[in-house]
Amino acid sequence: MTIWEKLQAVDRRILYLILAVCVSAGLFITIEIPTDPDPSSRDLYQAIMDIPEGKTVIIQSDWTNSTRGESMGHFENLLRLLMSRNLKFVFYSAADPIAPQVARTTLARIIKERKDEGLYEYQIGEDYIDLGYFANAEATNLNMGIDLRNAWSGKRTKKAGAGEISIWESPVLKDVRKIEDAGMMIVVTASASIDVAVQRLNKKVSIGAMVTGVVGPTVLPFYQAKQVNGVAVGLKGVYDLEYCMANGVNLKDEDGNIKVLNKGGKEYPKITEGKTLARGSKYYGTLHIALILLILAVVLGNVGMAMSRKKPGAKRS
């Protein structure tokens, strides 16, 4: 039995072990890997930075922990970005009943992280509103586009010092009468719920998307058609956004170098408060290792097959 034939017959548990060891090792390295952010991620950063001060952002959070490797990083980045800009936001879910609780847990962690850093602590009712779960994304998005006040009527929020109040009395939504009044709508999703949001709302509000690598390709046609103003796709998208947050766009560093270049575009500042390089930075090295392993597996598998065929008398499949 030649080495190539042995390679063809390798026990799959050995492959699993190699993957587990390599991927776990990558998690211990948190470094700023230089990158060239995708234009779609860069556009998302620019769109969020372009939201006028005082505007409220609508977040549709449709992810759970099954995709937390990507979606949690997206959601955390979004919260850090909005909080660093003092933008108020509303969040809800329209795809999975578990999603609101997952979003709440992540939000609580980011608020605590900022509190520990001595930064402003976002308050429910004052800076953000939690609308919970809407069971039907199609009907909800359609209704939001026709009449936001009706779509969210009867919803209430807690507010420190005021007890429970109507969401429309809260500072978060006081200037919002219809969806066009929102600064932006950002959908963090691991499903096709972004399709519904784009189909129903893209003419009324600027939409941004933070999606998983699997969903990404289906959103790119919307981005190319400018129905979505920016898309962060998968783990690369998480790191791209962190990289933009840490380095700005078209912004010269101390050495006069521009780390994120957008030829012909204007300059966007970097984020100066709170964490910038976080979960994406932590996982990005692992992504490199996993991709190298995957490429090696395909190459070795094919070379092994070709070499086995060359052996005299070998069967050609």
């Binding site: 390798v10 799959r12 492959l15 699993y16 993957l19 991927v23 759970t64 922990n65 099954s66 995709t67 937390r68 490797g69 996993a290 392993l293 995957l294 597996a297 395909v298 070795l300 598998g301």
Partner: peptide, 19 residues
């Protein structure tokens, strides 16, 4: 447990890529 279930896909992807 939800996250662990989905992470298993990585093992099958690698195995499929190789074989």
């Amino acid at each position: 447990m939800d996250a662990a279930m989905f992470s298993m896909i990585a093992f099958f992807i690698l195995s499929a890529a190789y074989r």
